[in-house]
Design a protein around this nucleic acid. Structure first.
Lengths: 223, 223
DNA sequence: GTCTATACACTGATAGAC
DNA sequence: GTCTATCAGTGTATAGAC
């Protein structure tokens, strides 16, 4: 539950009747924005408070500490995305359809949260112990279980000589790499290849939703 | 020049005769380690000093401020790598050879500096203005000039029907993405796909030096 | 050049009034 | 629930002895 992390000694029902829920949402949106931009270490509670238009103390009232606030933001961010992907990848749809959908979903999700992966990978490097611990509590992010069915289909594809001999792990990593990288290196790519023209860059991303699956299928299909 | 950023009021030649050069190297190595691991915001001067086995004040004596130290580390890190790549990519070697070499070089460089890209991309997101400014002063990183010849060859390859119709930018981005991503997501990949077995992970990387070029060439070659 | 001591600023967090 | 005031801790940076 989204609001289960509130820390207070007062009566639960009384609180829920107040306007705190709305305040929490505002805080979380503000915190997400600042954390994504500045990273955990670089983010300032003062900045988050300003962004939310409230007092700094309120952040502590609602989330007790910076760490707790961070964890809540982190969990929230992946809450919706992962189950959707997991469901699709476990379905009975054909291999190539899954590849297309997987990449499209990733690019769509990244369009909505351009900084999400920079954020995750940044934190992952600066504080691996902590983040892995958090991720363990966020269903499915670190688990490869939801890819089981997909891996099976790859094996079959190889056996049936539909696709070339390959390691399923390479394929999956390549799929994610090609989807995610343009967002990770966004500022560089934007500058070097598109002269900071955001419109061109967005068209480029949109085009990639088709190009990347084609690129991959081209490479692995046996002809 | 590597040691041009020293700040002091005393006589230049006297200083160069001392053992400061060695101390600087030690500091820079320590700083690189800490910055790469913790990011600029997360890095602590105290930690860097400890890592170098010297006093905290000495850091300021040699580099005046955290910002200057960071910039020096940053510049140093790319000083060797970029010119080598640039030279090769401007050469007359055939397209497919360049693709192979480019990817191998990237993976080799990343093996030596596993955190370098996380570091760059992390800083790029948390502090774009600052880093772009720094990069402008680091020859070639943000410039696509050194890829001019390579882009020409792609055009020719398309015209000669050696490779399929494609956008040179996509190809370049894909090449970098596939090389770099396994390092960016290192902790995740290590955990999810290799049960934290570093030996397996390293073999996987080594294998990719051949697989990735093949993957790309497979995809773009006309048959 | 290197160290100790210390100034100064800032940040996360708490206490208490309303 | 929200605010003001304030504290303790930590970080960067500097002064000065050797």
């Amino acid at each position: 539950m989204l609001y289960s992390l509130k820390y207070t000694s007062s009566n639960k029902y009384k609180i829920m009747a107040g306007n705190n829920k709305n305040t929490e949402e505002i805080i979380l949106a503000a915190a997400k924005k600042v954390f994504m931009q500045k990273g955990k270490a670089g983010a300032r509670m003062q900045k988050i408070a300003e962004e939310a238009g409230i007092n700094k103390s309120l952040l502590h009232y609602y989330f007790r500490s910076k760490d707790k606030l961070f964890e809540t933001v982190f969990r929230d961010t992946f809450k919706d995305f992962m189950p959707k992907i997991a469901e699709f990848m476990s379905s009975d749809l054909p291999l190539f359809e899954k590849i297309k959908y997987f990449i499209e979903s990733y690019i769509d999700m990244l369009n909505k949260n351009p900084y999400i992966f920079s954020f995750v990978l940044g934190e992952l490097n600066t504080n691996p112990e902590n983040l892995v611990e958090i991720m363990d509590r966020v269903t499915g992010i670190i688990s490869e279980d939801y890819l089981g069915k997909f891996v099976e289909q790859i094996m079959e594809g190889i056996k049936d000589e539909e696709i070339i001999q390959l390691d399923a792990r390479d394929l999956i990593i390549n799929m994610i790499a090609l989807s995610v990288f343009p967002f990770l290196a966004r500022p560089i790519i934007l500058g070097v290849f598109f002269q900071n023209d955001l419109d061109l860059y967005n068209k480029f991303l949109e085009r990639r939703k088709k190009e990347v699956p084609q690129f991959i299928i081209n490479s692995i299909r046996k002809k």
